[in-house]
Simulated scan of single mutants.
Amino acid sequence: MNRHPRITLLAGGVGGAKLAVGLAAICEPGQLSIIGNVADDQEFHGLWVSPDIDTLTYTLAGRIDSAKGWGLADESNRVLDSLKRLGCDSWMYLGDQDLATHILRTQLRGQGIRPSVIAQRIAESLGVQSNIILPTDDRLQTRIRTPEGWLSFQEYFVREQCRPEILDIQLDGVERATATPEALAAIREADLLVIAPSNPIVSIGPILAVPGLGQAFALANAVKVAVSPLIGGATVKGPADRMLSASGYRCNNLGIADCYSDLIDGLIIDQRDQPDASALEERGLHVMTTNTLMLNDADKTRLARELLQFAQGQLTEERLAC
């Protein structure tokens, strides 16, 4: 195969955005498509906010606040401070520049423009060359049941700082959702399908749960590789470990493999988890161990290159040639 392979990445959260940057750095324009998570979306102050899609967009545009891993760099918060003085809830941080994104998104949604088109317009306006794709244009909402009752994902993650015990997780609206044609085409036409080191329950799970997308992924004639979000058997950041347990999975790389059972050909794990490799290989998975911690752009690019080499050399040279 002489052309560059078409790559589709399923991504959510900071880990997904980091790998997206690494892949974008070594891909030609238009070669990389990224299907993001929209189940964290929520309305704040009358504006429709899409945290995972915005984190992905800002990161690829080189405008992310690298210290936080989300939001825009060189941000101010005068509007939020004013809202707080007026007695409004201000636990969801929305910076002044970031608010412009949400204002535009809400205006265009009100005009009946598809959310997928809006996401692409915002990405292009910020100079992003990779294709950012929504799994569905319908509303999805991850909800977390705690001892105090049901919370939206943002209420649990941001307002409550992930403190409450997780009793259950559900995805509202998925039974009525329709997959976007862009997402279906990106999966169907890919030479390489990659699952980012994102939370498998609330970042990747909602993408694959959209009717038609999980089936398209399983049936796609592509090499399929996942990068584990665990390092040393633990999460780098966030509540993925507790969410895995609450969903009936073990918090180790075997549990990650269970999440993607019958979907992937290979799994990339951190070098500190080398002891997991033999058990994963016994399941028929190809396994690569490397340093999966992405602390800087060099780490992101290195991991992306290693991923492509793994897909090409260890999985199948006939189906994928870079």
Results as ranks from 00 to 15, higher is better:
Leu167Val: 10
Thr136Cys: 12
Pro206Ser: 08
Pro164Glu: 09
Asp172Trp: 06
Ile204Glu: 09
Ile207Val: 15
Asn199Cys: 04
Tyr156His: 04
Arg139Val: 11
Glu165Ser: 14
Pro147Ser: 13
Val158Thr: 09
Ile144Ser: 04
Ala190Met: 08
Ala190Thr: 09
Ser152Val: 08
Gly212Asn: 07
Glu175Asp: 08
Gly212His: 05
Val174Asp: 05
Arg163Gln: 13
Ile207Gly: 01
Pro147Ile: 15
Glu165Ile: 13
Val210Phe: 04
Thr136Phe: 01
Ser198Val: 03
Ser152Trp: 08
Val174His: 09
Val158Ser: 05
Ile166Met: 14
Ala183Phe: 04
Ala190Gln: 09
Asn199Lys: 03
Gln141Met: 12
Val158Cys: 07
Asn199His: 07
Phe153Thr: 02
Arg163Glu: 10
Glu160Ile: 14
Ala190His: 06
Ser198Arg: 00
Gln141Arg: 10
Arg163Cys: 14
Glu160Phe: 14
Gly149Trp: 14
Thr180Gly: 07
Ser203Arg: 07
Asp168Pro: 03
Val158Asn: 02
Ile195Tyr: 01
Thr178Tyr: 11
Asp168Met: 04
Asp138Gly: 11
Pro211Arg: 12
Pro197His: 03
Pro211Ala: 13
Gln154Met: 08
Thr180Asp: 01
Arg188Gln: 12
Leu140Glu: 07
Glu175Arg: 10
Val194Glu: 07
Ala209Ile: 12
Leu171Gln: 00
Thr142Ala: 02
Ile169Tyr: 02
Gln170Pro: 07
Pro164Thr: 11
Val174Ile: 15
Glu148Trp: 15
